[in-house]
Every structure is written in structure tokens, then in C-alpha cells.
């Protein structure tokens, strides 16, 4: 047994388990002066997650690409008839109320629960319908990635027989390191606190 373990230990670098480099996507402009490749993610950063997604433009996307930007993030699905339109409208209202210099840096991220119907194409149609501009990031993921992100955010969800999803109504703020700094649960909370938290967190940076 000891010999086997020793063998496994010696071969460890070959068999994975080592942390991925913090930023291994090349060919994209570094966003904000952070030398992403050199600095590992913080211990609280959601960007430690290796969950992979696809944008509505069909490009593969890891959450770590958001590093350097404040992020307003929610999970949703495009065919949702009740809460999701309200959540998205609230995110648009948050964006409208931010001071210009904060607004320009912030990314607004929507990740779909619906791994089957919300394909990148369906998300692209949703972008057009909602007139989302470039700072909006719409993400499709497989069941594993969506489940992992939900677990990281504390979002609960369940698909019902008619294909719709029951889900937590949650808007999450991430700082530029990808750490959760605020969550608004429910639909009635208003957006003032979210706007204030985001604005304060960006002051002096």
C-alpha cells in the first residue's frame, strides 16, 4: 500500500489535481492593470471555480475572465414568466443609477438555469429583444457548471414537469477579485442598497 501511494505521489504532477493557472486564456486584452496570470485568485474568489460556460456569441467563457470588473450577477432563464423579467429589469435599473465611472467598469452577467433551451442562439435572441449592450454577459452552461455556480452563490433551483424552473431570486455583487460582497434576496428589496454597495466598493480604486 505504501509503495502504491508513493508511486501515486511521485506521479502526481502528471495526473492532475494541480490548480489551473489563474488565467490561461491568451489572446484577450488584460483588462485592468492586474497581471492576472501572475496573481492567483483569492481564497474567497468565485473565480477559483473551473466551471466553463459559453457566451451568446458562442465563445467559451470562464468566470475568471470577469476579473478586474465589478460584477452584478443573477441566474435566470429566458422563458421565465414571473420573477426573471423583474430581476433583469432591476439589474437594468441598477445600471442606470450607477455613477458613470462605475457603470463603465461594471459587467452585468446573466447565467441561465435552462441548459437545454437557452442555447447560445436563444440567449443571443434574448439579448436583441432586451437591447442589451456590450457590458451584459449572457452565459449558457452545461448541467454541471450551472449546478456548481448555483452552489457557489447559494442559489437553489429545481426544474418542474412543465420545463420551467423554481429558483431563488438573488442578485449577487462581486468585487473585481470575484468575491461576493452583497446579495439581494427576493424581489421587494429595492435596488438602493445594491447600488450603494457597488458604488462604495469602487471608490478609490
Amino acid at each position: 500500500m505504501k509503495n502504491i501511494l508513493l508511486l501515486l505521489f511521485l506521479s502526481a504532477p502528471l495526473v492532475g489535481g494541480a490548480p489551473l493557472p489563474a488565467d490561461d486564456h491568451t489572446g484577450k486584452p488584460a483588462c485592468c492593470g492586474l497581471s492576472a496570470a501572475a496573481v492567483p485568485f483569492t481564497k474567497k474568489s468565485l473565480y477559483q471555480s473551473e466551471a466553463g460556460f459559453t457566451t451568446d456569441a458562442g465563445a467559451s467563457f470562464s468566470l475568471g475572465e470577469l476579473r478586474g470588473h465589478p460584477v452584478v450577477l443573477a441566474m435566470f432563464f429566458t422563458s421565465c414568466g414571473y420573477a426573471c423579467p423583474l430581476i433583469v429589469s432591476d439589474m437594468q435599473a441598477i445600471r442606470a443609477q450607477l455613477p458613470a465611472e462605475v457603470r463603465d467598469r461594471t459587467r452585468f452577467v446573466l447565467v441561465s438555469f435552462d441548459t437545454i433551451r437557452d442555447t447560445p442562439d436563444a440567449l443571443a435572441k434574448y439579448r436583441a429583444m432586451r437591447s442589451f449592450e456590450a457590458p451584459w454577459v449572457l452565459l449558457h452552461g452545461n448541467a454541471n457548471s450551472v449546478r456548481e455556480l448555483a452552489a457557489l452563490l447559494g442559489v437553489k433551483y429545481q426544474q418542474e414537469a412543465d420545463g420551467a424552473f423554481s429558483h431563488s431570486n438573488l442578485i449577487t455583487l462581486l468585487n473585481p477579485e470575484g468575491e461576493v460582497i452583497h446579495q439581494r434576496a427576493g424581489l421587494q428589496g429595492g435596488i438602493g442598497e445594491t447600488v450603494a454597495t457597488l458604488t462604495t466598493s469602487c471608490e478609490g480604486k
Partner: peptide
């Protein structure tokens, strides 16, 4: 043993 990031002393508090 083969996954150092999942050892007790190295695991991230996020996980």
C-alpha cells in the same frame, strides 16, 4: 494524495 488542492491544509474556504 494525487490532488494537493483538496488536502486539508490547502483546500480553499470557498470549497
Amino acid at each position: 494524495t494525487v490532488s494537493p488542492k483538496w488536502r486539508r491544509s490547502e483546500v480553499s474556504g470557498l470549497f
